[in-house]
Simulated assay, not measured.
Amino acid sequence: MQKKRRSLNQVKEDISIRVLREKLPKEWVVHTYGADYGIDCVIELFDFVDDDQKTTETLGENFFVQLKSSDCISYTTRRVYSRGNVSKGALHENKDDYKEIEVAKFQLDMSDILTIQSMGIAIPVLLILVDTNTEKSFFVCLNDYIDKILIPEDPSYFKKTSKTIYIPTANEILDNEDSLVAFRAYGKRSKMYGAFSLFNYQLKEILRLQGVAASPHLISFEDTISMIKTFTTISLKQDIWSGHEFWQPIQWSHKELIELEKAINEGIDPAEKEQFLEYCSHYIWHRLTNLSNMYEELVREWFMPSYLALLTSYPPEEKTST
């Protein structure tokens, strides 16, 4: 009678899970899935709540992972060109301005790609590739890759059976805080999209207070200040302001909201109502709602195998040059 056996693929899977756990902070939790339906695990972010680092608390942040492993990864370089914003139109590249990026190649089934695309972009799915020979691991956000790389470069991608995914080797997962910046940003993504929707709603209501919206909502000075104060309080309670020290626009808007809250508490002169509302709509909430634009155009291209990502994703000493 045949004894129990383990395939090479099962061995590789065990190695990849072990390597991933070893490279992530010990307080983070890896929730593994059973049958493979395109998602292998969910990473839940925790932080210590005491100086002795004995107790951790969930941040309410997570991201999905499609975990792959191989003992014969193809390492090569990918030429990337400066290009126009692919969120606004077709791909237009400047062939005279390019850089070379070191990448690891992986062939991903189209069924996996289409499954991830159907999930939307609010909760990121990371492809994490583990080299079982060196135990190095690399990541790329597949949601962003589909929109920023795959669709612009191959609009008929869905007709293929698989696609080659190019993962920058600069996206290596290392056991240090700099390496975790991307993961912390991905973990906050769903909160960011929730905040973007809230800020847009608040701006529309402020414009109604000013009488410049399609359906004006003209109320007393006291009720106007009360509404702006409520908007400010709710905005400051959004769990997006910490953990984004690497993205200055978030820090700027946070500081402006705190200053606005202080000004309201100190009192607003009724004679300055119109000026105050204009300051809120044209300055504070204009910048808050513009965060979503910058997020789409810039943040979602971080850590991609692209020219822009090379310039914006890594510390200066880690940038690749031609």
Rank of each mutant, 00 (worst) to 15 (best):
I206H: 01
Y186I: 10
S281Y: 10
K204C: 03
R208M: 06
L198Y: 12
S215A: 07
L260V: 09
L257D: 04
I240T: 06
M192N: 13
F276Y: 07
E177R: 09
F199S: 00
M192H: 13
S197M: 09
I228P: 00
F276N: 05
S253A: 10
N200W: 10
R189I: 01
G243P: 00
P249G: 08
P216E: 02
D178W: 11
F183N: 04
K273N: 14
V181Q: 12
T233C: 00
S242N: 09
G187A: 11
S281E: 11
L198W: 14
L277M: 06
K237C: 08
K188P: 05
Q202M: 15
S179N: 04
G211K: 00
I264N: 00
A263K: 05
R184M: 01
E205P: 06
W247K: 01
N265K: 15
L277V: 02
I225K: 01
K255P: 01
L260P: 00
F276G: 01
I268K: 05
H244W: 05
L260M: 09
D178G: 14
K262F: 15
I264A: 05
K188N: 08
F221A: 03
T224P: 07
K255F: 10
F231A: 03
Y193D: 03
Q275C: 14
E222S: 06
E205D: 14
F199K: 01
L180P: 01
E261D: 15
E259L: 14
M192P: 06
Y201D: 13
F276M: 04
R208D: 05
F183P: 03
G267C: 07
E272G: 11
C280Q: 03
E278D: 11
N265I: 04
S281Q: 05
E261M: 12
A213G: 14
F231V: 06
F231C: 07
M227S: 05
S242K: 12
H244Q: 07
L236F: 04
